[in-house]
Amino acid sequence: MLVLLPLYFTVPAVADAPKGFKEAVFQGSSPKLNGRELVFTLLPGQCSSKNYGDGRGESDCKNGNIRSRINAKKHAKLGQTMEYSLEIWIEPGFRYSKGNVPRSKLTLMEWQRINTVKNHIYVLHLDSSSGAKFEDKACFSPSRFGQWVTFKMLVKWSKNDDGFMEVFCDRKRIFALKGQNAIPPGCGTKAKQQCHLDKMDLRPPIQWQIGPKLNGYGIVYKQNGKKIAVSTLAKGWFDDEST
Rank of each mutant, 00 (worst) to 15 (best):
A15E: 13
R144M: 13
A234T: 09
L86R: 10
T243C: 09
W157F: 15
W237M: 08
G188N: 11
E91W: 12
Q207S: 06
G216M: 01
P44M: 02
V155R: 11
G28T: 04
K74Y: 10
K199H: 13
S97C: 06
A17K: 15
F21R: 07
I206P: 00
G53L: 03
P18S: 02
G218V: 04
K19P: 01
K22Y: 05
K222I: 00
Q194M: 11
R36D: 15
K178W: 09
E83P: 01
L202R: 05
R56S: 13
Q112G: 00
N63A: 10
F168P: 11
Y84C: 01
K152M: 13
E241P: 04
L124F: 04
D161I: 14
A15Q: 13
L33G: 08
S68I: 05
N100V: 03
P205S: 06
E37M: 10
P185E: 05
G64S: 01
V149N: 15
A138V: 11
Y8K: 15
C187H: 13
W208P: 00
K227M: 11
F145C: 03
F40Q: 01
V3N: 14
S59A: 07
Y122P: 00
G163F: 12
S242N: 09
P102Q: 04
P102W: 06
V117S: 08
A15M: 07
G163I: 14
N119K: 03
E166H: 15
W111A: 01
K192W: 15
D60H: 06
F26A: 00
P185F: 07
C187R: 14
D240G: 04
V25S: 13
E23F: 15
G45H: 09
K152H: 08
P185I: 07
M200P: 00
G20R: 02
L197E: 05
A13S: 08
R56A: 07
A229C: 02
D170I: 08
G64D: 02
Y52H: 06
C187I: 11
S30V: 12
D239H: 08
F94L: 04
M200K: 13
Y96S: 03
S242C: 10
G146R: 12
T150C: 03
M82L: 12
F26N: 06
T81I: 08
S242Q: 12
K178Q: 15
A234I: 10
L126R: 03
K156M: 06
N100I: 03
Y122A: 02
Q223I: 07
S30E: 14
S143T: 13
K137F: 01
Q80G: 03
D162K: 14
R36P: 05
P44C: 04
L5H: 08
D162V: 07
L42D: 03
S97E: 14
D161P: 13
K137V: 03
E166C: 13
N71C: 05
E110C: 02
T232C: 14
G236W: 06
Q223K: 15
G45A: 05
D201S: 07
N100P: 00
G28A: 05
V39I: 11
P185Y: 06
K118A: 04
T107V: 14
V25Q: 15
Q207T: 08
